[in-house]
């Protein structure tokens, strides 16, 4: 009996049993608080989140990634799609990122699923930083700003378009170009559609308030969001590396409804 207890303890210490449970369910073990793990291509990471929690997902790589974040919606087909390596329509997709920080939170108990795909090989690490929605709200109430989500994006050539999430009035989107040549813009839906459908060029829809041009190296764009229009990050260029941050200011408190 004691011998088995020792084995059991040893297995638990190694995270073996917990890991095996997730393997049975077809998902990898979620790392604990602030503990980064190396993740493999197409491995599905499941992360339960309780009502009121705000867990920040952080992913970084030495290569280049597409990160897909999916929250369980109750539609079993969507989860099957995700597990099968496809992208359910409600998933959030972050393309061509080297780093990503994105909060997982909900008003009800829920589960998030994360999967990475390497667009360029490298070592990729993932960790979850625990926190509470109330803590984030308290910081805003104290007058502090709060980063809602953040990414380091690489555009090696051609055009990248990506929706920007968590925009409400009172958020500020800050784009810092670190290197490369090209243009990065934050376009509203209408302008984005015009560009996507070939009715206009990026330059044709760019204004100094919504776009930044980098000819060699550093450039900064800051857009204060005052409405509920969706916005899309559109970047064109060669060797562009930039960071975007969606920052909540205390003004956001006026616009975040509770639930109904």
């Amino acid at each position: 009996m004691h011998r088995w207890a020792g084995v059991l303890l040893a297995l638990l210490m190694n995270g073996f049993l917990v890991g095996q449970m997730w393997v049975v369910r077809g998902a990898a073990l979620s790392p604990g608080p602030a503990e980064a793990v190396v993740v493999r291509e197409d491995e599905v990471h499941r992360r339960p989140v309780k009502a009121g929690e705000r867990t920040v997902l952080e992913v970084s790589t030495t290569g280049l990634l597409e990160v897909v974040v999916y929250e369980r919606t109750g539609d079993a087909r969507e989860l099957e799609e995700f597990r099968a390596g496809r992208v359910p329509r409600t998933a959030k997709v972050f393309s061509q990122v080297r780093e990503l920080s994105y909060p997982l939170s909900s008003v009800t108990d829920t589960e998030f699923y994360v999967r990475v795909r390497h667009l360029r090989p490298g070592e990729t690490r993932l960790r979850y930083v625990p926190g509470l929605v109330d803590e984030a709200m308290a910081r805003l109430r104290k007058g502090e700003n709060l980063v809602r989500n953040r990414g380091v994006v690489v555009v090696e050539g051609g055009r990248l378009t990506m929706p920007v999430y968590q925009l409400v009035p009172g958020t500020v989107v800050r784009v810092e170009v670190q290197s490369g040549r090209g243009v990065v813009g934050l376009l509203k839906t209408r302008d984005y559609l015009d560009v996507r459908d070939g009715r206009a060029t990026v330059a044709g829809r760019c204004t100094p308030q919504a776009c930044v041009e980098a000819s060699s190296g550093r450039a900064v764009l800051e857009v204060a969001v005052g409405d509920y229009d969706d916005r899309y990050l559109v970047a064109e260029g060669q060797g562009l590396v930039f960071t975007y941050r969606v920052v909540a200011t205390p003004e956001v408190l006026n616009h975040i409804s509770s639930c109904t």
């Binding site: 919606t73 109750g74 329509r89 409600t90 909900s106 009800t108 839906t189 969706d230 639930c259 109904t260």
Partner: peptide
Amino acid sequence: NDRPQPPLLADLWRRVLQERGITYKPSFK
């Protein structure tokens, strides 16, 4: 939206819509 509104009723709405054979397509703006 990525789920029926308000979020507190999302699961109940999902079930109701499914039971009634109403096709629901989230994230379709």
